[in-house]
Design a protein around this nucleic acid. Structure first.
Length: 444
RNA sequence: GGAGAGCUGGCCGAGUGGUUGAAGGCGCGCGCCUGCUAAGCGCGUAUACGGUUUGUAGCCGUAUCGAGGGUUCAAAUCCCUCGCUCUCCGCCA
């Protein structure tokens, strides 16, 4: 959520930012409503001040025993209350309109974010590793959606039987490999000072609002039905009492301290968690239809940081390097790109994407996205910090999140990049301790 | 699912109709004192919004004691609804 005061005072900057993001969010609509709202507040508070003053006098008048004056004062207050009720009703409506609008505004791109219209304009920052030359090795690499089933470790068809399309069933060494990856990744992060958490995967609307998934992206979420489904809470059209399957542990990790004021000396906080993630993927029909790349349920190890505004961009770089280190340890070639203004996510001020080499795509494919959200989520989630030696009161802190990594996509990358001519897959060295010594995954 | 208790400031905790935005304590800040440390003393210390202002200073106003509604001239205090927490019972991995 943007700071209303900042929007009011910097409409041109907002206009430019929205344009650069190709967002249709309209500053002028906001300014108009905001102006009306403030005018109403002046009126309302003036009346309330008069009512309060009159009310106080009644006590004095009663003590003096002046019945006539007391009754006159009561009548005056009663009259004011009628006016107050009318204006207050208007104000409630306007408040809601202003909030509803403000809440749908995306974050402002940081000044360092490259300008661009779409993902085609994302600059590549670095490459690590060299994709294998399968032609030189004399065989054509298989895609993981062929290799996995052939090995008997991935079963798409039975997953459909159990759930529906775009779900995955892993078996044997496949299930073990998934679990090995999770544990390996968590250990890498724990070694780097991250604290491990195990959050609920069903979260309430306040939580999803805090990270910006609600109210705008409700369609992307799986949700529970509740008795109160009929009475939708008017605010943002979000249903009260309903729970949502979390699309990422970013939501729960970032909201752990929602509504709290943290001591500056306890920052930055490095959090990590493994959770399954659930996404309806509404609107993704036709994209990445094969394999494990885009499914409704996938595993992810998430990284979240809570930090001060001064350090958040340094922390973003460190977090990106942290995610990259996982790929380096696994020996998977990757590149880092920086998202341009037009490709930035809703809550992000700056985002680095890490893409792993996938032979089946003959291209790099996103496996991690690391973002600095600035105070955008902190304002929504009322996440503050205190630093008595440097300032009075409390301020919004900065939140960051990144995948460290998407486990399913990593699974696919390992099958494809580590496959052998005979259809087996060599297990990367670092994973072997997590796989009870299995070195080669072969058909059962 | 049933019954009971509770929800107050960064934290703990007083407070059952008016001058209480809220005692006290802790924490924190500033100062004093003590030749270190600790202790002690004094002062200060909620948030949001709006107005005023060159000003993220000050001042003024409004709102806020889980949320919403009601009674009253006046509500943290009384009534209603809802949410959450805890305890006991039931059920259960």
């Amino acid at each position: 959520m943007l700071d209303a005061k900042f929007v009011r005072e910097n409409p041109e900057a907002i206009r430019a930012a929205m344009l650069s993001r190709s967002s249709s969010w309209n500053v002028d609509d906001f300014l108009l409503l905001d102006q009306q709202r403030r005018a109403l507040i002046v009126q309302l508070e003036d009346l309330q001040a008069r009512r309060n003053a009159a009310s106080k006098h009644i006590g004095d008048l009663m003590r003096e025993g002046d019945h006539a004056a007391t009754e006159a004062a009561k009548a005056e207050v009663a009259r004011l209350k009628v006016d107050i009720a009318a204006i207050d009703a208007e104000k409630v409506t306007l408040d809601r309109q202003v909030t509803d609008l403000l809440v749908t505004a995306p974050n402002l791109p940081d000044a360092s974010v490259p300008a661009g219209a779409s993902e085609d304009d994302n600059p590549e920052i670095k490459r690590w590793g060299t994709p294998r030359d399968f032609a030189a090795e004399g065989f054509a690499p298989q895609a993981h959606w062929d290799l996995g089933p052939a090995l008997g470790i991935v079963d798409f068809e039975r997953a459909v039987k159990l759930a529906e399309s775009r779900f995955v069933l892993l078996g044997g060494a496949g299930a073990a490999l998934e679990r090995a990856l999770i544990n390996f990744m968590l250990d890498v992060h724990l070694d780097a000072g991250y604290k491990e958490w195990w959050p609920p995967v069903l979260a309430n609307s306040d939580t999803l609002f805090g990270t910006g998934n609600l109210p705008k992206f409700e369609d992307d979420l799986y949700k529970t039905q509740t008795e109160s489904d009929a009475n939708t809470d008017l605010e943002g059209g979000v249903t009260a009492g309903r729970l949502y399957l979390t699309p990422t542990a970013e939501a729960t990790l970032t909201n752990i301290h929602r509504g709290e004021v943290l001591e500056a000396k306890t920052l930055p906080r490095y959090y990590t968690a493994y959770t399954p993630c659930f996404r309806e993927e509404a609107g993704s029909a036709g994209r990445d239809t094969r394999g494990m790349i885009r499914v409704h349920q996938f595993d992810k190890v998430e990284l979240v940081k809570l930090t001060t505004p001064e350090s958040s961009f340094d922390e973003l770089e460190k977090m990106t390097l942290q995610a990259e280190s996982v790929l380096e340890l696994l020996g998977l070639p990757y590149r880092r790109i920086e998202l341009c203004t037009g490709d930035l996510g809703f809550a992000a001020a700056k985002t680095n994407d890490i893409e792993v080499w996938l032979p089946s795509y003959s291209d790099y494919k996103e496996i991690s996205s690391c973002s600095n959200c600035g105070d955008f989520q902190a304002r929504r989630a009322n996440l503050k910090y205190r630093d008595p030696q440097n300032f009075k009161g409390s301020r919004f802190l900065h939140t960051l999140n990144g995948s460290g990594l998407a486990v399913g996509r990593c699974f696919a990358a390992i099958l494809e990049n580590y496959q052998n001519a005979d259809g087996t897959v060599t297990v990367p060295e670092v994973l072997r301790p997590y796989l009870r010594g299995i070195e080669i995954i072969a058909p059962e």
